[in-house]
Amino acid sequence: MTNNYAEKMKTMGLNFFTLAMVLVLWTLIAYWQKSPFFATPYDIVLGFVQMVTVGDVEGYRLWSHMLHSLVRVSAGFAAACLVGIPGGLLLGLYPKIYDRTRILVEPIRFISPIAWIPMAIVLLVGFSRYIFVIWVASFFPIFVSTLWSVRQVNAVYVNVARVAGASRLFIIRKIIFPSILPSVIGGMRISLGISWMCIVAAEMIGGQMVGIGRLILKSAMVTRMDLVVVGMISIGFVGYATNELIIFIEKRIFRWRAAVSIE
């Protein structure tokens, strides 16, 4: 146990050391370069403080950018869950429908969600543009993972309930739903990652002045590289936090599964 603890401390120390080394190197190079394109870590801290207290060139503060991005992603993501999970469940239970209409669904899957942005710009306005792009981006991973996991439900569990005289609804609620839930949430986690990437692209191209993606782009236009990096770190942080949130929920819901890895 103590050995394990010492090992952990050592790893942590090494991590700190690496991080410090990178920061020092970065600062040195930036000083030596003296280029406006190369912000020092110190500049970035100042930029961060400025973003929090004053805001960017147009006066939007960091939290407002983050909030806008977060609301857009949440709305599109929620819409994708609302359509993707029931849709996947339905087509998983009736595989014939999916097999016979694949040709309509499958090609759309391969169109990069970012390629929908120009279409969204033409057909939609304002908030709905972002929601639509995020919806497209997160729909397929959720839908496909739900669909496939329904097909892979262990038949024995279904038979246990069938032999006991269970109705179709009972089987769906108590057998199929719990057993697909882990892969559904897995699909949601993948979706969320893609969504964060797409929201950045959509905000850069989409025209509204607020959102982390837009913050990064407009700061780059006026070569405020410190703010660009602040934006990048913020988006990374939000992405990380939402990912951790899903992992946390996963661990709570799937205690029965976590136990497997202990064994």
């Binding site: 950045v200 982390i212 700061s219 780059a220 590289m225 660009v228 990048m232 990374g236 992405g239």
Partner: peptide
Amino acid sequence: FIPPVAWIPLVIVL
């Protein structure tokens, strides 16, 4: 965790 797309403006400058 930084989406690659978020690098684009930085890359445009550099």
